[in-house]
């Protein structure tokens, strides 16, 4: 470390920052795709839930 010049240190920092940025961007892309798959049924589930909420109490207690 003692042999490194200021420019070398800054270049290392820059390289690490680029690696992190690249990693974040890759994760964001992966996660968007993952969420699209995981929540593919969200709209259907919402309609189903709203239908459930309109049922009368008598239909929700097994009578």
């Amino acid at each position: 470390m003692a042999d490194k010049t200021k420019d070398t240190v800054l270049a290392d920092v820059d390289k690490r920052e680029k690696q992190l940025t690249s990693s974040r961007e890759a994760w964001q892309k992966t996660n968007i795709a993952r969420r699209k798959t995981k929540f593919a049924n969200a709209e259907l589930a919402s309609k189903d839930a709203l239908k459930e909420m309109k049922k009368p109490k008598s239909a929700r207690i097994g009578k």
């Binding site: 459930e52 909420m53 049922k55 929700r60 207690i61 097994g62």
Partner: peptide, 15 residues
Amino acid sequence: KPDATTQPFVVDTAS
């Protein structure tokens, strides 16, 4: 609440 006439949640005890 999803709308003016519906409560925030409902409970079904035979689901």
